[in-house]
């Protein structure tokens, strides 16, 4: 029985699955981003020595440099992961739900 009204759609298991999956993925990614950045800040606040050590013997580069650049790059990668999921999975689910409602 396809949902006809907004109310019925909210009861529709397909819609509920879509909303659940989206919440799960956006929340997880948000938490990962928070941990990533505030973890970096905590390292600076509580363990400067760790960031100050050299990446390898004889190199001037400190571990802090690749870690900082890593936070920037990983933040972007997270947006990439989301967009990959949304473009491939989420949009299809939205299309499906819309089609069932005759829209």
């Amino acid at each position: 029985m396809p949902p006809k009204s907004v109310h019925e759609l909210l009861e529709d298991p397909e819609f509920q699955k879509l909303a659940r999956q989206k919440n799960a993925i956006t929340l997880t990614l948000t938490v990962v981003e928070l941990v990533l950045y505030f973890g970096f800040i905590a390292l600076i606040a509580y363990n400067k020595a760790f960031l100050a050590q050299k990446v390898s013997e004889g190199s001037a580069i400190t571990l802090g440099i690749p870690i900082a650049v890593g936070v920037i790059v990983l933040s972007w990668v997270l947006t990439g992961i989301y967009i990959f999921w949304a473009n491939n999975k989420y949009d299809a689910m939205v299309k499906n739900v819309k089609a069932r409602m005759g829209r």
């Binding site: 948000t30 933040s75 947006t79 989301y82």
Partner: peptide, 16 residues
């Protein structure tokens, strides 16, 4: 460099 990192990390939040 630390300072510059802070200016980027809001964007994933905007997206999610």
């Amino acid at each position: 460099l630390i300072y510059s990192v802070g200016w980027l990390v809001g964007w994933p939040i905007v997206m999610f």
